[in-house]
């Protein structure tokens, strides 16, 4: 029989702060207004969508002008992935007729929270018509028996 180790006071505090951090991040994603680009990092945030199906979680990301072969999908933790891709060419504010900002962008970058547990090490992705499709099989818990 497995012996469950009792959580220390510090483990509990660490978990608490980790939960608060996660909730803050979710809240920011939902309600905080922020630009879709970062001058400092020379990145643009792409449009994205997360779909949960019975078998997998699918994240799609719109990556126009992305250079095929430069797309990277990395797990940051069990529930977060980071997506980045190089652009075919540098894009400047001038290209959009904007003269009051200066800067150029050469990468797409975003992070996405996965709403249900997944086997993050089994991530697969494809690019179709400039839309990145990331597939992650779901990790199912134990079935609840019907009484």
């Amino acid at each position: 029989m497995a012996i469950r180790k009792k959580k220390s006071f510090f483990d509990i505090i660490n978990e608490y702060f980790s939960d608060v951090e996660e909730l803050t991040s979710q809240f920011e994603d939902m309600f905080m207004e922020k630009p879709s680009w970062s001058q400092k990092n020379c990145t643009m945030e792409p449009l994205k969508e997360v779909t949960v199906t019975p078998k997998e979680v699918i994240v799609t990301v719109d990556l126009p002008l992305a250079k095929e072969g430069t797309i990277e999908v990395k797990p940051l933790d069990n529930r977060t992935i980071e997506i980045s891709a190089e652009m075919k060419r540098k894009v400047r504010f001038d290209d959009f007729g904007i003269t009051h900002h200066k800067g150029e962008f050469q990468r797409f970058y975003c992070q996405t929270r996965i709403p249900v547990p997944v086997k993050i090490d089994k991530v697969q992705f494809t690019l179709k018509k400039g839309i990145l499709e990331v597939h992650m099989p779901r990790k199912h818990g134990e079935r609840i028996p019907i009484e």
Binding site: S36, M44, E45, P46, L47, D62, P64, L65, G130
Partner: peptide, 11 residues
């Protein structure tokens, strides 16, 4: 111009 439009139309 499809890709350029998609990039410009994100916001």
């Amino acid at each position: 111009k499809g890709e350029e439009i998609r990039l410009k139309a994100r916001d």
